[in-house]
Design a binder for these strands. Structure first.
Lengths: 188, 188
DNA sequence: GCCATAATATGAGTAATATTCAGTTTCTGG
DNA sequence: CCAGAAACTGAATATTACTCATATTATGGC
């Protein structure tokens, strides 16, 4: 059903969610409306599936980045740079769509649960790195969770639409600096 | 038209946006559907107006908090605590509705512009405080903007729904600690 | 190959609901 | 008291998510 989700993604990206009719999705996918409803119970489910797909992809990218950094025994700054830069790269493709999906995540209870679960996973992996680097103390978990949540906002906000006159790359550096400082506390 | 927006807000909060019909809004407000459309061009505009109202309120609360902190020549930690605690208080009232509105903000271009403008205003006021405290160096503006963006995510995420077993008040402390550390860099 | 049965696809039709507008009531000030 | 403006009304219309009776295609046993 990936082709069907892809058709929906294109239209949501081009015209927004409400302006996209289920008939248009069917047409773009080259099937009939009836068939769309064979795969997904309703229009909302298309968005939910798309959101879940994106979230899983993002989590996988994040965990892979953390894995690489861990293997290289990288510094905190490098860990965070690897993490953030790889997510920026993933999102640069279709920023509007990704923002739509993230936004939707907050709305749909099921998807919200997925978000929490995946943010938790990534935060847990980040906490392991913090411990390895002797940072964060006994609250490494909470701090990692706040970092994942906050950096995610930066990702979908300032990093995808940098203030005019500022290069994205320089914003990435700024964000990495910020989180390095925020997490460096508690090096006892 | 505040009574009309209030009726819409109640129903959006109780049943969600799509499940709320324009006829129900009219009924709750004690007028006819036709009259609703005299005040707002379409259903979407109700949500947009509600979002703008909430955003303006939040920005006002934030600026007032910063004003108080400035008058008291408070420390960075106190400035941030004042700021975050006052926004948490504002949001604790109807968290579901506020999340709905924030979500919508990202979708509707006009509202998104308002978000950027207001975030910019609050960030500018925060940057003034950072300068007063000799913090942030020549990038005080950018750092303030990232702080506003990130703390906003914490506000609507972890702070409104703390991890199970963690009191909201203790999460507020954690978030304040985090941003204090993040912004303390560059005390040259 | 041929048939029976299952699986999948179709798209006009139905239901729900956002929006309109011709007619009505209420206000305003002269 | 009245003419005209302004605001209100809700049945009628338009849009669109969703259904389902019918048709097409796939499968496997002989």
């Amino acid at each position: 059903m990936d082709w069907l989700l892809e058709a929906a993604a294109q239209l949501f990206h081009e015209h927004g969610y409400t302006a996209t009719t289920t008939n248009k999705v069917a047409e773009r996918a080259g099937i009939s409306v009836g068939s769309v409803y064979q795969y997904f119970p309703n229009k909302d489910a298309l968005l939910a599936a798309l959101a879940e797909r994106h979230l899983n992809e993002a989590a996988a990218v994040a965990l892979a980045a953390l894995g690489r950094a861990a293997a290289a025994e990288a510094s905190l700054r490098t860990v965070l740079h690897e993490l953030i830069a790889s997510l920026v790269e993933l999102h640069a493709a279709r920023p509007g769509l990704h923002s739509l999906l993230v936004r939707y995540s907050l709305a749909h209870p099921d998807v919200a649960d997925t978000v929490r679960a995946l943010e938790g996973e990534v935060a847990a992996a980040l906490a392991v790195e913090l411990r390895r680097l002797g940072v964060g103390g006994d609250r490494a978990e909470r701090r990692a969770l706040l970092a994942v949540e906050g950096a995610n906002a930066h990702l979908h906000g300032t990093l995808l639409r940098p203030p005019s006159g500022v290069a994205r790359e320089s914003m990435v550096e700024e964000v990495v600096d910020l989180w390095t400082a925020a997490l460096s506390r508690g090096r006892e």
